[in-house]
Amino acid sequence: MRLKSQYVFVIVVVGVVTLYFVVRSIFSAGHHEVAQAKTSTSAALPSVQAKFVSQVQRQYDVVIRGRTQATRTVVVRSETAGTVAAAPVLQGTFVKQGEVLCRLAVDARQAALDQARAMQKSNLLAKQQNEELATKGFRAPAQVLLSQANLDASNAAVRQAEIALAQVNIKAPFAGVFDHRDAEVGTYLAIGQPCGSMIEIDPLLVVGDVPETQAASIHVGASASARLVSGQILHGRIRYVSHDADPQTRTYHLEMTAPNSHLDVRSGLSAEMHVGAGSGPAHLVPVSTLVLDSAGRQGVRYVQADGRVAFAPVTVVEETHEGVWVTGLSGSVELITVGQSYVADGQKVRVALAR
C-alpha cells in the first residue's frame, strides 16, 4: 500500500525536527562540559591580592639609637696645696673661660713674691754698680758675669713666686657649664685634688654605635639629625667614625656634632639618629609583605607578567610609619600584599587588586 504524499511530507518534517533537537542536545552538553572544565581550572588557582609598587630615587638613612653627650668633660684640679677660701661659682651655671671656680687662701705666697722682688731689685743694683766699676777698671769681668747670674736667678725666683700666687685661683679651662663642685669653702686641697667638673655642651655631641653591616656607608662629614625623647630635633654632621669595632658587639662608634647655643639640650638624653648614607633606587613596601624564602633570606613575593609568583631578596634601608624602604627590586613590580605566605615560587595565581 502506497502512502499518500501528504503523509510522507509530515513524516519527513517530524524526522528533521527530531534530528535537530538530538544534535543540539549533544553539542550543548559538550560546550557545557568545556565551560565547566574551564571554570574548575580557574577555581583551582590560588587567589592573592597585589598592588603595583613603583621605583623611586631615595636618600638612604641609617637609623641608630644614641644619646647626647658633652663635647668635653674635664675635672678641674688644684695645682698647689691650700685651703679653699672662696667658691664664687654655683654648680650648674655657665662660666666663661678663665673664670675662677675655687680660690685658695693666699697664705705666705704674697710674702714670698715680695721677698723675691726685693732680691731681684738688689741684684739689679749690684749688677749696674759692677758694670760701672768694670768700665773704670775696678772690677774683673768675672765679677760682672757673677752679678748677671745673680740677677737671672732672682728673675726666675720672681716668676716662680708669681706662678705660685696665681695658682690659688683655680680657673675654668674653657667656656662651659660648671656641672659639679667637689670642694667647698674650708676644704683643704692637696696638689691634684679636684675643685669640680666642667662640661662643654655647645657644640653638643650625639653618639651611637653602628652595626658592621652599615658602617661602610657612613663617612665623616655626612649630614645627620637626631630626634630626642622630648621630640626636639638636632641637625649636624658626623665628625668621627671609629675604624676598630667593639670586640663584644661588633659595632663601630660614631659621633655627631650639633649646635646648642641656648644650652637647652642636656647631656645624656636618649636620641634616634638618622645618618645620611647616600641615595639610590628604592621601593616603599608594607612591613607585612616581607617574607623568608627556604634559604632564610628576607624578601618579597610578586607576580610576573605570565601570572606566576617570583621571590626577590631585599634589604631594608629605612623604616617609616608608611612602610619600609627596600632595595633589591627593579622597576615597577606587582607586589603580593595578601597571600604571599601561602604561594610558592613559579606557582600560577589569580590576582585581585589590593583593597
Rank of each mutant, 00 (worst) to 15 (best):
G208H: 11
D209L: 14
V210W: 08
V210E: 04
P211R: 06
P211Q: 08
P211S: 08
E212G: 06
E212L: 05
E212R: 02
A215G: 09
A216W: 12
A216N: 12
S217G: 12
S217Y: 13
H219A: 13
H219R: 13
V220W: 06
V220D: 13
A222D: 15
A222I: 08
A224R: 04
S225Y: 01
S225V: 05
A226H: 02
A226S: 03
R227C: 09
L228E: 00
L228S: 07
S230Y: 03
G231H: 01
I233G: 01
I233C: 05
L234I: 00
L234P: 04
L234G: 00
H235R: 14
G236S: 11
G236D: 05
G236I: 03
R237L: 13
R237C: 05
I238C: 03
I238Q: 08
R239M: 13
R239I: 15
Y240T: 01
Y240D: 04
V241E: 05
S242A: 05
H243Q: 15
D244M: 13
A245R: 00
A245P: 00
P247E: 12
T249S: 13
T249N: 09
T249P: 06
R250D: 07
R250I: 09
R250E: 13
R250V: 06
Y252S: 06
Y252V: 10
Y252W: 01
L254R: 05
E255Y: 02
E255S: 00
E255H: 01
M256C: 07
M256A: 09
T257H: 10
T257P: 01
A258C: 03
A258R: 04
P259I: 10
P259A: 08
N260S: 04
L263D: 14
D264S: 15
V265L: 06
R266L: 14
S267T: 12
S267W: 00
G268M: 03
S270N: 08
S270E: 11
M273V: 09
M273P: 01
M273S: 07
M273Q: 07
V275R: 01
A277D: 06
G278C: 09
A282M: 02
A282K: 07
A282H: 00
L284N: 00
V287F: 12
S288W: 09
T289A: 11
V291I: 15
V291N: 04
V291H: 06
V291P: 08
V291F: 00
L292S: 15
L292G: 12
D293T: 04
D293G: 03
D293K: 03
D293A: 08
D293C: 02
S294P: 13
G296E: 04
G296D: 06
R297H: 13
Q298I: 14
Q298S: 14
Q298N: 15
G299V: 00
G299K: 04
G299W: 07
V300G: 05
V300E: 08
R301N: 02
R301A: 03
R301M: 07
Y302V: 03
V303H: 02
V303K: 04
Q304D: 12
Q304V: 08
Q304G: 15
A305S: 14
A305I: 11
A305F: 07
D306E: 00
V309W: 10
